[in-house]
């Protein structure tokens, strides 16, 4: 099932993005639009994951091609 594989892939990506060492990338004294980078980055990644998940969950399952003949 491609759906399951996509879920597992997304999960693995999220597990990496939400953990060390990748979150160290954002851990610096920088501001984005006046806001500290780390919380902004975490919330943005989080929002992106939700959007992706919603996209996968709500997409209609692709119609199987009709059996030939």
């Amino acid at each position: 099932m491609p759906h399951t594989r996509f879920s597992l892939g997304l999960w693995a990506a999220a597990a990496l993005l939400f953990n060390f060492p990748l979150i160290l990338i954002w851990d610096r004294d920088v501001t984005v639009a006046g806001l500290p980078l780390l919380p902004v980055a975490m919330f943005v990644i989080w929002a992106l994951l939700i959007v992706l998940l919603a996209f996968v969950a709500e997409a209609r399952p692709a119609r199987r091609p009709p059996p030939s003949g």
């Binding site: 597992l8 939400f18 919380p39 975490m42 989080w46 939700i50 998940l53």
Partner: peptide, 20 residues
């Protein structure tokens, strides 16, 4: 500070596996 967050990132990970 930011350490309150992991408790809500965990559920996000769990829900990614909802269909499984």
């Amino acid at each position: 500070g930011i350490w309150f967050l992991p408790i809500y990132l965990g559920p996000m990970l769990a829900m990614l596996l909802a269909g499984v």
